[in-house]
């Protein structure tokens, strides 16, 4: 791998003399993330490769695709949204599959550390506001400059969720109640249609002691109602026990909205609530999907099996939203 990366880097990084410290970070069989260092006379350049290995070209239907992700990340960077700079989009002659190389941004993505470690004590009080600003930056990207993405509406999202839930063929009265609620409260097409990150939550933010340094993982990016991103980050599952701080366990909705409005965009709290309910149900259905993947194999991961047993967490959160006691 290191040799292939070295050849690839030599083709677009003048002066680079080699690659060291190549290490696989995460991902499944179809999607890999590698960290490596580019050796250069001006100093070492930290880099990340995100790729589908040769033979794993096709992305799942919801995914934007790695080429689209690279363009989105670069557009975000150009517009001043905290984002890693894209260094290179893989070409066939790289023989590394499809994907791209980006600059490595130092910082933390693990929510529990961001929410508890002393090193982030000064960042925590400002993060909810900052995330509002960052979301506004994403939603402000010019649609004409974006790659081809799926167009989503609330009605279409409800339809997909219902299909995914029914395919599990396991009765869940609380999910049924949530589906009915979503249908009855569908706010209709958004007057504003923008780029939506699609997975705007802990795990996809690189945070430093100074605040948000980068937004990652544009895999679920699409065109739709911008309030979807603000609702998704308020889903209780991303609060990691800090249940009175709706924005990722960091702060209030008001702080998030203030940051969003300060960057020149208007938040719609009622739509945000709708998308929070949708997001809670979606995470619940995704947990059930993890259980299925465990059951079907071939990777019989106990971790996935146990995530399946987290779907009841979303049921209590749905009841707290829809039928508070």
């Amino acid at each position: 791998m290191q040799e292939a990366l070295g050849r690839c880097v030599a083709s677009w990084c003048p002066g680079a003399t080699g690659v060291t410290n190549a290490a696989r970070l995460s991902g499944g069989a179809s999607q890999e993330t590698w960290s490596f260092d580019i050796v250069h006379p001006d100093g070492v350049i930290g880099a990340i490769l995100r790729r589908a290995p040769p033979g794993y070209g096709a992305a799942p239907s919801r995914a934007a695709g790695l080429d689209a992700e690279a363009i989105l990340m670069q557009r975000a960077f150009d517009a001043g949204v905290p984002s890693p700079r894209v260094l290179h989009v893989l070409q066939p002659q790289d023989e590394l599959g499809t994907g791209f190389v980006m600059a490595r941004v130092e910082g933390e993505t693990i929510a529990r550390k961001i929410l508890r470690d002393a090193g982030f004590a000064e960042a925590r009080p400002i993060l909810a506001h900052q995330l509002g600003q960052v979301a506004a930056g994403i939603h402000g990207l010019a649609l004409a400059q974006l790659p081809k993405l799926r167009h989503m509406t609330a009605a279409r999202e409800i339809g997909e969720l219902e299909r995914d839930y029914r395919s599990l063929s396991w009765p869940r009265p609380v999910f049924e109640l949530a589906l009915r609620w979503l249908r009855d409260h569908d706010p209709g097409p958004s007057s504003e249609v923008t780029l939506v990150h699609g997975d705007f939550r802990h795990g996809n933010f690189i945070i430093g002691p100074d605040g948000v340094r980068a937004v990652l993982d544009w895999e679920l990016a699409h065109i739709g109602d911008p309030m979807e991103d603000l609702g998704w980050i308020c889903v209780n599952s991303w609060r990691y026990g800090e249940i009175d701080k709706p924005v990722g366990g960091l702060g209030t909705r008001e702080e998030l909205f203030a940051g969003y409005q300060g960057a020149g965009r208007q938040a719609d709290p009622a739509r945000v609530k709708f998308w929070e309910v949708m997001g809670t149900l979606r995470w619940g259905v995704m947990c059930c999907g993890m259980m299925q993947r465990f059951r079907i194999g071939p990777e019989r991961s106990i971790e996935r099996a146990m995530i399946g047993r987290r779907s009841s967490e979303t049921e209590i959160d749905l009841l707290r939203l829809l039928a508070p006691r």
Binding site: E313, D317, R320
Partner: peptide
């Protein structure tokens, strides 16, 4: 629905924040 869900959480995730609150 509340009772059923509380009984599920007692098995699945008794340390979950929302469950402990309720």
């Amino acid at each position: 629905l509340w009772q059923t869900t509380m009984d599920k959480l007692a098995v699945d995730q008794p340390n979950y924040g929302s469950y402990k609150r309720e």
